[in-house]
């Protein structure tokens, strides 16, 4: 337990001026590892004049604004072979993640659902394969690829060849639902 020894040092350093340290939930409480239950819609319309019913916990914002989670997400993105299908955000057999076109919704809750459930045209389901907090970390990192997380928290470098400007330099491109052409009239995406 090194924390008690570090604490006085931090108090001394922070005494000189404002200081806000980012909190890192390095190893989440096992009780919290159970699957989260966010209520999101895949459509922007509903029966009736109002918007679809969406109830989210706000947990997504905690992940998206946290540099540690985003950094972990970037590492896990490769460890779980996300880059094999989506490259460094430009896409391959899977769609690009750095643009503003979102077939199944572009909110972090939508992305968590897509990773966990899979999607019909080739996205595998990772339920039971990736611990829930790590799915959130990957989803937060995916949001950073299109510039939809704070630049101060987004990763600033890669360990491999220069594929594209770093995530923290990405111009924000807010999600636009749909926008891609289905491969055939018989099998809409």
């Amino acid at each position: 337990m090194r924390a008690p020894y570090l604490a006085p040092l931090l108090i001394v350093l922070c005494g000189a001026g404002p200081c806000q340290r980012e909190e890192r939930e390095v190893r989440p409480d096992p009780a919290a590892v159970a699957e989260t239950d966010e209520r999101v819609a895949l459509s922007t319309i509903t029966a009736g004049p109002a918007a679809p019913v969406v109830e989210t916990s706000g947990k997504g914002r905690d992940y998206e604004t946290n540099a540690y989670h985003l950094s972990q997400g970037k590492t896990l993105y490769k460890w779980f072979n996300c880059n094999g299908c989506h490259a460094n955000g430009g896409g391959d057999s899977g769609p690009p993640l750095m643009d503003d076109k979102w077939i199944y919704g572009g909110s972090i809750e939508n992305i968590v659902a897509a990773i966990r459930e899979g999607r019909p045209n080739g996205m595998p389901s990772f339920r039971g394969r990736i611990p829930d907090p790590q799915i959130w970390e990957i989803a937060a990192y995916v949001r950073s690829m299109s510039g939809n997380v704070p630049a101060a928290a987004a990763p600033s470098r890669s360990d491999s060849l220069h594929a594209r400007p770093a995530e923290n330099r990405q111009t924000p491109s807010p999600p636009v639902p749909g926008g891609s052409t289905p491969p055939s009239g018989l099998m809409p995406e």
Partner: peptide, 20 residues
């Protein structure tokens, strides 16, 4: 041709295993 067929993002040079 997947950059066109699959609507890939040309800003990522490594897309489509580097063909983009």
């Amino acid at each position: 041709g997947s950059v066109v067929a699959a609507d890939l993002d040309v800003r990522d040079g490594t897309a489509a295993k580097g063909f983009v």
